[in-house]
Design a protein around this nucleic acid. Sequence first.
DNA 1: CGTATTCATCGTTCATCGCCGATAAACGAT
DNA 2: ATCGTTTATCGGCGATGAACGATGAATACG
Lengths: 116, 116
Amino acid sequence: MNTIQGSPTPIEKMLAGRLGALAHPARLRILQHLSGHPACCCKEVVECLDLAQSTVSQHLKILVDAGLVIYRPERPRSVYQVDRAALAGLSTSLAGLIEACCAGEPQSCKDKNSGN
Amino acid sequence: MNTIQGSPTPIEKMLAGRLGALAHPARLRILQHLSGHPACCCKEVVECLDLAQSTVSQHLKILVDAGLVIYRPERPRSVYQVDRAALAGLSTSLAGLIEACCAGEPQSCKDKNSGN
DNA sequence: CGTATTCATCGTTCATCGCCGATAAACGAT
DNA sequence: ATCGTTTATCGGCGATGAACGATGAATACG
């Protein structure tokens, strides 16, 4: 009946989007690098990645748009930092999904409809 | 120094691959549906998703290839189930990465070279 | 045998990704 | 005023992804 089956919920889209932002070796690497420094500029990331500066800038933008990295366009150089809260939140969301999957209860199927 | 900056490690690629498999609303939905049933056939998933059967079959294949779903081509209908162990492993890997990021220690930058 | 069901695969179309070089904007320094 | 540095964005290109319909294989039922 209510096999809702309609368009994806905003929550699904959001989660998929963040996972997508994470789903690239260069971006994982960027996150790791960022995590090792209080603040990084773009050039610094470029130097640890051997990709073109424009490419790195785009990867950074993807992470920022996904809400995983904090960005401040300060003047001599921009500032990028890991958004630890967002990352923790993502981890929690994913853990919740996975826990539901591992529990294997039919409820987990209906839960996705309630939020819609 | 150790700004290794070379090609991505296999681990990074693997993690990125699995995250990529997860990074689609339809596939998240499939995983949730699968988690609510001991075993599903393709048609059943199709009915809860309103995508074409061929499309669903491909999404399923992506999840299987990523090692997140177990597949047995039994005869009347195929059997798909969540690979709970793999999912748990992914959760652990990601949690580790995120924890490293949230700790914010420079070590986390070197960790990526060692083993994990 | 013929039909219906289920499913994987193929071929196609269209959109998006990933990468690059080039360029322009915003400074600091000379 | 003119460099040099840093960075974001643009345009383009090849590759990949996502979706579909059509097709064929395998099986169950008449």
